[in-house]
Design a protein around this nucleic acid. Structure first.
Lengths: 199, 199
DNA sequence: GAACCGATTGACTGGTCAGTCAGCCAGCTT
DNA sequence: AAGCTGGCTGACTGACCAGTCAATCGGTTC
């Protein structure tokens, strides 16, 4: 009775949605596209999800909470402030390297779409900014960063720099070879941190 | 006969579109919203523009070409590389301060929407990245910036940082008092440039 | 084997809007 | 005053698509 079905159709639909959203964008994909891609009947999407929006909601929330947890854990570690920022940058870049389509959907359709869809998720997105700001603030307290910079402003520039790099990869504006990912991590930390540190 | 009409309806429509797009977002605004806001008949929008898209196109292209020109002129000046970047940051921030609604539309609906609408304008957007990259590359040639950083990567982080600050203002994530604009300009240049410069 | 139940199907509906078009009217020309 | 021109009007249409729902299927229980 409570036996799990051989194939998790719900998961199947989510995975199909990632692919379709990544290729066509959220607005341009019809629910039937998701169903077709998942090899599933149209109505089944509505059996598992309340609406098309809820599919994207789920994709975002699952992944974003991983990010928030990762930042919190990093912050709780005993690393230097600079290394903490490096860890955050690395986590985001690795997320993209590991699953570019999902990250593309999250960034393009939610994070960078605060006007339409992302508005619902502003609180969660803002939480990330604030966690990063906390790392900066602590770093200032330790004298590792200059204290004449508002932590939330520093956080925004830091996050914005990373997101722009991902966006560049997504839209093929900058090269995305394997070495490029490593260099990108260094770059963000190097530029932003060296600028943040007292001279 | 060729006498200019007392009120430029075309301009009136564009201005109304800025307001409506800024408040509701491009997708959520109906063409009738634009017409109503402009105090003009529905059909007149189609007298002056081929489509709803073309209204946004026009808003973007007009403004973006100003930005490209500004960057080019700055690059042609005799300022130091650092001051050139500062001038670019200042121009963008001032554009926002001067006309926040228009900049909001351009950033939210085009620049940050490379998936849907922005895709058409990727070449123009990329041009900005490349012009900034040129400033960085020249700076490296002069020994003003480290040369172990790919100019296009540096350009992306620089631009991304600025855009993220504007986004923060747009969505009220960070304070936008008068002093905040000035501090933001400094911040971007300070962090990014101090990180770029050789130690 | 009959009753039951959740998973699955896909045709259909209702509402929304971008874009069209047939015609109106103010002002100008002759 | 008759005719013309082009800015201007807004009701209408055609396409599209999210979401509904009645029906079917396959497996389990008694």
């Amino acid at each position: 009775m409570a036996q799990a079905p051989p194939i998790d159709k719900r998961r199947q639909i989510l995975d199909a949605a990632i692919r379709v959203f990544a290729h066509q964008g959220f607005h341009a994909t019809r629910v039937s596209d998701i169903a077709d891609e998942a090899g599933v009947a149209y109505g089944l999407v509505y059996h598992y999800f309340k609406s098309k929006d809820e599919v994207l909601n789920e994709l975002f929330s699952q992944r974003w909470s991983l990010l928030l947890t990762a930042i919190e854990e990093t912050d709780g570690s005993s690393a230097t402030p600079r290394d903490k920022l490096a860890a955050v940058a690395a986590f985001i870049v690795e997320s993209y390297r590991h699953d570019p389509e999902l990250m593309q959907v999250i960034i393009v359709e939610v994070t960078r779409a605060a006007n339409s869809f992302g508005r619902t998720h502003l609180p969660e997105i803002r939480q990330a900014y604030e966690l990063i700001a906390k790392i900066v603030a602590d770093g200032q307290g330790l004298g590792a960063f200059r204290d004449d910079i508002d932590p939330i402003f520093a956080s925004m520039t830091f996050y914005g720099a990373i997101e722009q790099l991902l966006t560049g990869w997504i839209f093929d504006v900058i090269p995305s070879g394997d070495g490029d990912f490593e260099r990108a991590k260094e770059l963000v930390v190097t530029t932003v941190c060296d600028g943040l540190e007292p001279r």
